[in-house]
Nucleic acid binder design. Structure first.
Lengths: 201, 201
DNA sequence: TCTCGATGTATCGTCTCGATACATCGGGAC
DNA sequence: GTCCCGATGTATCGAGACGATACATCGAGA
């Protein structure tokens, strides 16, 4: 998830880690934000994988491994996406399997970068997410019906509120899908019955 | 959080790990459930701390550390809360500081065990949670106002939906608080102006 | 001048998760 | 009867996320 988000942000312009973090929490809908303990290791991994490059070669690479922690003068590092990174991003952007929407966090990031996503992929992701959340809703409903008599008022309230939230999310997704469909028929008049292929696993 | 939930469940009756997990996801409102990778280490920690006891002494304790993984016959383990564990639970149940409500997960567990919680503590936790969520809401509002013009339709939708969710949570909490207040005045007629003490840090 | 908050990079220990392995048991298919 | 499957049940592994923390720079205002 972090990898996708970082590539997406750097796709727009090079950035510092700090700036990356700020943009990230804004893009994520303002609720969850990423910690440095996740961000910097992720950047390191991606740098090692060749997906991003830094403007400043690491001075410690020349020093012995047991050198002191290099106090003083710690330079800013600007991260830039590489050609490989762009390729990777477009590969990820095309994925429509369950991994794209089963996790709410990743789905949020996918949505935030929908402007880089093909219309049919957008639709498949939204529909997949709706299926996932609908399944959650059914589970919740069953649980509520099963335990209704056995649990106290507070647990009941918790379950009721959870169910309502999930319900609202389904409706929200349905509206997005509706809008998406209207737009797609407006742009591209259908040449016949659509042979909608099932998403790859 | 796990510690609190486990103590709360075992407070009612002894249980297997498996049963614990099922009850846990039901109590948590059916949405998030705990994985074994969290549950068993937590049980081990709590056993080491003397908060819970097992009905079956670990046979591997007698074997050398490098013995083979003990294939075959792995007995069921029933966990029981100890006197120390009950003490710890009542200690935790009385906490009203930010640690009780800043994290949504822990707050959910606290709510699920409200029947073991004093009325004034319940009220303080609900009000604390509302303050926390209200702060989140203000942050979200500010973010939305700030980025309104600069982001695309999808990000906007994400933020809008997030804001609505937080808003609904505030209203839900307000209803719970309202109910709680009505109940408390019904049970205990106030003997004068209430000297509401600030919660300890 | 002094301090404070924003900007900025980085690591540590602790915890959590998803995946997986392995074992037992009851019940339905055949 | 037996064979297989899903529920029950205990347990560990590696990847990685998190909160806390350390350290450094810089501009604004007391």
């Amino acid at each position: 998830m972090l990898e996708f988000a970082i590539l997406g942000l750097l796709h727009q312009s090079p950035m510092h880690g700090y700036e990356l973090r700020k943009q990230l929490s804004e893009v994520l809908g303002g609720l969850r934000s990423i910690s440095y303990g996740s961000l910097y290791p992720a950047l390191k991994r991606m740098h090692a994988a060749g997906l991003i490059s830094t403007d400043e070669p690491d001075p410690r690479a020349l020093l012995p491994a047991d050198a002191p922690p290099l106090t003083g003068r710690r330079g800013k590092v600007v991260y830039t996406i590489t050609a490989e990174g762009k390729e990777r991003f477009h590969e990820l952007v095309g994925q429509t399997g369950p991994e794209a929407y089963d996790d709410g966090g990743l789905f949020g990031v996918r949505l935030a970068f929908f402007r880089h996503t093909e219309a049919d992929v957008r639709l498949r992701i939204l529909e997949g997410r709706r299926r996932t959340v609908e399944r959650q809703r059914e589970g919740l409903r069953a649980s509520l019906a099963r335990t209704r008599e056995r649990v106290d008022r507070y647990t009941l309230e918790l379950q009721r509120h959870g169910l309502e939230s999930v319900d609202r999310e389904v409706r929200w997704l349905s509206e997005l899908i509706e809008t998406e469909r209207r737009q797609s028929v407006a742009e591209e008049p259908p040449p016949g019955p659509r042979p909608s292929a099932p998403p790859p696993p």
